[in-house]
Computed example of a mutant assay.
Amino acid sequence: MESAGKVDAWWRRWLRLGGRPDEADAAAERARRLRVLLDAARAGFPVAPAAHAVDFTCSCDRVGCPAPAQHPLSFAWQSQATTDFDQITRWLVRDPDANAITPTGRVHDVLDVPTEAGRLALERLAEAGVAAGPVAALGEDRWFFFTTTRSPLDEDEWWTSELDSHPDEAADEHPGLRWHTRGSYVLLPPSRLADGSEVTWVRGPDHPLPDPLRLLDVLTDACAEVGAPALGEQWLIR
Rank of each mutant, 00 (worst) to 15 (best):
G5Y: 03
K6I: 10
K6T: 13
V7L: 14
W10I: 04
R12N: 13
R12H: 13
G18V: 11
P21K: 02
E23A: 11
R30S: 10
L34M: 08
L37V: 05
D39H: 01
A41V: 00
R42D: 14
R42N: 13
R42F: 11
A43R: 06
G44W: 01
G44T: 02
F45K: 07
V54W: 12
D55V: 09
T57I: 03
D61L: 13
R62S: 06
V63I: 14
G64K: 12
G64H: 12
P66M: 08
P68K: 08
A69L: 10
Q70K: 11
W77M: 00
Q80I: 06
A81W: 03
T82I: 08
D84R: 06
F85E: 15
D86M: 04
T89P: 10
D95R: 13
D97K: 12
I101W: 03
P103E: 01
T104C: 15
T104E: 09
G105R: 00
V107L: 05
V135W: 09
A136H: 04
A137V: 04
D141G: 04
D141Q: 09
F146D: 01
T149C: 11
P152Q: 02
P152T: 04
W159V: 05
L163T: 07
H166E: 13
A171I: 09
D172I: 10
H174C: 11
R182A: 10
R182I: 04
G183V: 02
V186G: 05
P189R: 00
S197G: 06
S197F: 06
E198A: 14
W201Y: 09
V202I: 15
G204R: 00
P205I: 09
P205C: 03
P208R: 03
P210R: 06
P210N: 03
D217Q: 10
D221W: 12
A224L: 05
A228R: 02
A228G: 02
W235V: 07
W235R: 04
